[in-house]
Nucleic acid binder design. Sequence first.
DNA 1: TATGAATGAGCGTTCATTCAT
DNA 2: GATGAATGAACGCTCATTCAT
Lengths: 204, 204, 204, 204
Amino acid sequence: MVKDNELTKQKLLKAALEIFSEKGYYETKVSDIVKRAGVAQGTFYLYFQTKESIFTSIIQSTNDQMIEQIDQIFAEQVSPQMPKEELTRRLYETIYNCMALYRDHRSIVYMMRIHGASQFAEAESVAKACDENLLGIIMKLFRKFQLFPEYDQFQYEVAARAIHGLLNETCMQYVIVQELTEEELSKIVGVVTQMIYNMTLGCE
Amino acid sequence: MVKDNELTKQKLLKAALEIFSEKGYYETKVSDIVKRAGVAQGTFYLYFQTKESIFTSIIQSTNDQMIEQIDQIFAEQVSPQMPKEELTRRLYETIYNCMALYRDHRSIVYMMRIHGASQFAEAESVAKACDENLLGIIMKLFRKFQLFPEYDQFQYEVAARAIHGLLNETCMQYVIVQELTEEELSKIVGVVTQMIYNMTLGCE
Amino acid sequence: MVKDNELTKQKLLKAALEIFSEKGYYETKVSDIVKRAGVAQGTFYLYFQTKESIFTSIIQSTNDQMIEQIDQIFAEQVSPQMPKEELTRRLYETIYNCMALYRDHRSIVYMMRIHGASQFAEAESVAKACDENLLGIIMKLFRKFQLFPEYDQFQYEVAARAIHGLLNETCMQYVIVQELTEEELSKIVGVVTQMIYNMTLGCE
Amino acid sequence: MVKDNELTKQKLLKAALEIFSEKGYYETKVSDIVKRAGVAQGTFYLYFQTKESIFTSIIQSTNDQMIEQIDQIFAEQVSPQMPKEELTRRLYETIYNCMALYRDHRSIVYMMRIHGASQFAEAESVAKACDENLLGIIMKLFRKFQLFPEYDQFQYEVAARAIHGLLNETCMQYVIVQELTEEELSKIVGVVTQMIYNMTLGCE
DNA sequence: TATGAATGAGCGTTCATTCAT
DNA sequence: GATGAATGAACGCTCATTCAT
């Protein structure tokens, strides 16, 4: 049911994603993309208006998917009444799933975060949307668990962002930049879980 | 006592830093830089061999300075025997000083981290050097305080990186991206200090 | 049967040859070439990697042709046993054919010898290859006719080069620099033949 | 009695000659010249209006000297009545002196002939003036010795140019391009003398 | 739909020349 | 006279985009 031209478009998107990931936006030439996709130079412009548009199109669509999947990962209900072991287990699972998700989109995340971010306003805002979404989820959990009741809205945000940064950097360094085994991933998630637990639930 | 040509070089560096920060490496044209510096196109090449070289020269030299200053900030001795209040105070001060340092180099850090990173291998490695230095310092403190004694080397590294990420992201988001008042900065440092304290010393 | 792009390439080669001949390598701008060829600036780089490469490509290919044709001109067998009239006739014909060949490649030879030589190592070596080829042919004839039997190898070479210089300069001055009638060419070849005959066969 | 500024001018001329010889006109930068001369960039323009003008000035003045010296070399009277041995000896000496003269101006001749010729009209005309002078001398000798009495003016010229080419190429190849010992030079002059003798006096 | 030759604006860089000191 | 920092026109080359086929 995939139309012939859909196939060509997919070839272009795949090639573009690969090369953008390898070399970044500016060092990627449209000619590189079409060469790897195996189509003619002109064909590119049947499917994308500009070089910029294929770039934003890639990160846009991936981002939408990832936001959705992250929402699903966090959708599982947790409540302050749960025993700590249960909460820890769920925290672990959630973080694991998140990191696995990033791992599965390694090259696109790499492109978006490492090469793409802030090369255009648009690219930046896409990455930001993803961050803000995750940040919102974290803050909601803060409120649900009434952590740091003395904090005002701004302090809440800072705290949430601290967790986000913690997650983000470990994810980038260990999950995005290299190929990981399951075992390694588990180990990383273990440490990260403990850190986040300590930061939040594990202290009076 | 500044020679005339040093002045021109400084004008170029200043202009370049500003425009690189605003637009990133690729969108910055040499012609933009010289225009803002108020010199002729050719003058640029009296002081810098290429456009790339002014870029790396800026981040290189700033980075060296910052690494040195961070080392100084952390040089103050702390020991596990100190009372917790003293440790907390020092932790707070250290983080404050770090963030203030970054704030004072706002635009250059912005350029390096947001625009520069991974546009060239060299730019990337410079930023990395800075991160690794801080990471090393954190790990040394981990050992000194015998935190997480059950961790192996890799887990130590992950934990240190978690702290680094926490610091880094809050710093980027609040200190680099915008102009902050002292009050706001204090508030942020307060939250971050507490988070790190919780993660490390504040739990059994 | 000539593909469209071959045609463009030919237009560029023709224009380049003309302008290089007129102004030399350095005074010829790529923009001159494309203007005369009636194509856009970028089109040039579809067919040639650099300005230098079109230059060497022109002289290289012409040179190869000319070496081959000179070899053919001299291929006809002559022997010391032939009567002097026959030898003289053949000498005349050979020289005539050589000069006619150069005349037919006038502008390219001009470019190569007058403008091109020693502007690059490569251009120089191409011209040299042609000279050395001719020199080798002359020396072979020396040996066949056992001229100057008292000469050693070096003296042979000098003598051959003397003949080559004689031929070369008359050729350059009369054949390359101007448009010649058949009659003028015959007259020149007549004199040159006699000179060479005198130098070699015509003396005890 | 050499004024201070004359010295500077000489340093510039010497440096320019050297570098022009090594790299040719276009590859020589004014900055190269002043660097080797050990003066400042601006100083150059106190002594020469343009880069082109130092070039033509060098070849002009050297050429004038060489023309004069060649005239002197050929000034010695020869006449058809002299015995052949005497004539041969004088021919030998004349050619020897000529080649030695060129040898002594090796680098300047190299620059003029190999790099300079025909990069500008002016440079070309200087070299030509030298050639034409020698050509005129040769033709005068032709007439004096009534060689080839059946030749018309044009044929005379061709014959003279043939000799000139013979001399010129051997001179360029052996004398200009490399450093020669006296012995080698003698050997070359020996062959060339014989060739020219054969071409002219040595045949009925 | 697909091609790929053609386009041309725009970039980084060079270097002969000028001029304030 | 001497300096050398400053100039700016001009070049070679790139590459996103167009368009006739």
